[in-house]
């Protein structure tokens, strides 16, 4: 081919141009399909759920006699499970991650533990449910209770918390650590004053996403925390919080959704719960984004 004669305006050959246009159309199409699917899903849930949603539905306990439908117990159970799980999983997960990245010296052991956490992170939640039933409900004698559910969720979310915390600790430049140690700081002082503050945004984001997983989980809780729809025993104030964890069992929002849809074929209520879950998921994602941005000060 004569290079001299090829002008800039001539551009691509017809075949390459067709290929280019074809690929572009394909990519646009896939993006449109995904967006349409998502919008349809959200739209459908909203359209079917919102009419059934009312303050009464959110704020009362269901009663056949009074003919009231309500998901207050499920909301409270969800809150209980989220808080109880976080109280246990945060120190455990963040602590292990700090140990693995800052303290552990045996590289092979660390690699083995990291491999194990990765495998655990990819495990189907029903397996955690099964183990939870055997270990926490039966063996540890907790019975079907919110606490047994929380413990099972701790197992499930622990790998995620460890991984995200580790990733975020690894982004802290080594030079910060050296700078701190060279000033005569002890190891823990260095971790507390330099490493953790520089990685807190990632840790918080990881935790908020873990909350999302807890709220979204159903299999584990059906097995371990019960499926009751009634308000069992709830005291007033935080004082009875821990007692209730042991005594009470019941459905969280996702399990309530399952109850409505599969046990009672009450799809109006099921969709109403779905709307609530959707809103919670939305809030969690926004919170994770905001937290990540807010905490990254410097």
């Amino acid at each position: 081919m004569n290079r001299e004669s090829a002008s800039l305006t001539q551009g691509l050959s017809a075949r390459r141009r067709a290929y280019d246009i074809g690929m572009r159309a394909l990519l646009y199409a896939s993006a449109i399909i995904i967006c349409a699917l998502l919008l349809f899903l959200i739209g459908y849930i909203l359209v079917r759920g919102i009419p059934h949603l009312s303050w009464e539905f959110l704020s009362s306990e269901e009663s056949v006699i009074k003919n009231i439908e309500g998901i207050l117990p499920a909301l409270i159970n969800t809150l209980y499970v989220v808080i109880a799980t976080l109280i246990i999983v945060l120190p455990l997960g963040v602590g292990s991650a700090i140990y693995l990245t800052e303290y552990a010296t045996n590289k092979k052991l660390v690699a083995a533990i990291e491999f194990a956490t990765e495998t655990l992170a990819g495990m189907p939640s029903i397996i955690f449910a099964l183990v939870g039933v055997i270990v926490f409900c039966e063996f540890a004698g907790l019975g079907t209770s919110l606490l047994a559910g929380a413990f099972s969720l701790v197992m499930m979310t622990l790998p995620t918390i460890i991984r995200t915390t580790q990733e975020s600790l690894k982004t802290v430049p080594q030079s910060y650590r050296e700078g701190s140690l060279a000033l005569g700081a002890g190891k823990w002082h260095m971790v507390r004053t330099v490493v953790l503050p520089s990685s807190v945004d990632g840790i918080v984001t990881g935790c908020i996403l873990a909350v999302g997983r807890i709220v979204g989980e159903s299999a584990v809780l059906m097995f371990t925390a019960g499926m009751g729809m009634r308000l069992a025993k709830y005291g007033h104030g935080l004082g009875e919080f821990f007692k209730n964890l042991f005594d009470s069992s019941g459905a969280t929002l996702t399990v309530a959704l399952y109850n409505y849809a599969k046990e009672r074929a009450d799809f109006e209520s099921a969709f109403a719960v779905a709307v609530v879950l959707l809103v919670i998921a939305f809030i969690i994602n926004i919170a994770a984004k905001l937290a990540g941005r807010k905490l990254k000060k410097h």
Partner: peptide
């Protein structure tokens, strides 16, 4: 020992804090 034998590194490594807190860190 490290308190008595201080070190300045090849690449400046101030902590991601205020100037005051950097100096007050030690």
């Amino acid at each position: 020992l490290r308190r008595q034998i201080g070190m300045v590194f090849q690449k400046a490594n101030p902590f991601p804090m205020s100037i005051y807190d950097n100096i007050a860190y030690g």
